[in-house]
Design a protein around this nucleic acid. Structure first.
Lengths: 159, 159
DNA sequence: TTCTTTGCAAACCTTTTGCAACGGA
DNA sequence: TCCGTTGCAAAAGGTTTGCAAAGAA
């Protein structure tokens, strides 16, 4: 088991990601667009987890003042489909959350219910067991959600 | 690992559950009520997973014609607090889902992404590993969400 | 030019809240 | 009687959609 960190995507990675997005977009018979690329860039460079609303705020802070919420909501599923981001922190309620998936390794989350801190980790044994179980139950495994909740060291001490 | 089934709650279990609800309610300085008990009964007897809306439909089908959605939304968190039901199928999107928790063992879910079938299972090894990991990361584990997605045997064949 | 994308506003859906009437202890 | 509960309607929060103008190929 090990913690997993999310180093920022460098400009090369950003380029590769946008390239991948364009490939998917063209593959679907759609067109590229500057606005969509801007949303993708903001999502890829966002540090940590974000909602549509938070991404919009970030976009506006970056100068894309007239980007509209509806556009962000329209672009996010495309970015998921292209593998640039993925849904995450499903249990957080109210508002879907996303995080970068492009050039980032698989991981699960443990969340402090007191201070909301999120630690990301990877544990191969889980992955193996999940595949075993799925097979036993007659399923071909395609994905999973695995979130742990607890109280972190800091918050335990504070009590 | 084993499949876990949810046998219906018999009238004795129903009585115990309502008793437990009353205890929690009184413990909070609140009052019992017929409407709340009716919502609890419908929730406890609901087969499978349900949303607030679905529970409301069921209630009305059972003759509680004037029960209002707002009431259901107000009662559900109480039922969770009293341990009669729990949130479940977080990943299903649009609308919180619940299932009975009272006199029912812990389990996780695997969902067929094609036909939406849900199989419930219990795997002690997961529980142990989760505790280990949490400890390693400095957390005191208090809960988790674990949902697997895949394609069930039937749907694999159908392809 | 031909479609797709975007901004805008309105619609939607689920859930929450204020309030007056009702009901339990 | 006192205070919590309920129905109702309105509001709120997140997301989707119809439409005309703007943009990509």
């Amino acid at each position: 088991m090990r913690r997993v960190n999310a180093p920022a995507l460098d400009s090369g990675g950003l380029e590769r990601a946008l390239e991948q997005l364009r490939a998917v977009v063209h593959g679907k018979g759609l067109k590229s667009s500057g606005v969509r690329d801007a949303v993708a860039r903001a999502a890829l460079q966002y540090e940590g987890h974000f909602t549509a609303e938070e991404l919009l705020t970030e976009l506006r802070a970056q100068g894309a003042a007239d980007t509209h919420a509806a556009t962000v909501y329209r672009v996010l599923p495309l970015l998921v489909e292209a593998g640039l981001i993925q849904e995450s922190l499903l249990s957080a309620g109210q508002g879907h959350r996303y995080e970068r998936a492009f050039e980032r390794e698989h991981h699960d989350h443990i969340i402090c219910t007191s201070c909301k801190k999120v630690v990301e980790f990877e544990f191969e044994a889980f992955e193996v067991l999940q595949r075993d179980i799925s097979e036993h139950l007659g399923f071909r495994l395609t994905g999973h959600v695995h979130e742990l909740f607890g109280v972190c060291k800091n918050c335990q001490r504070a009590t």
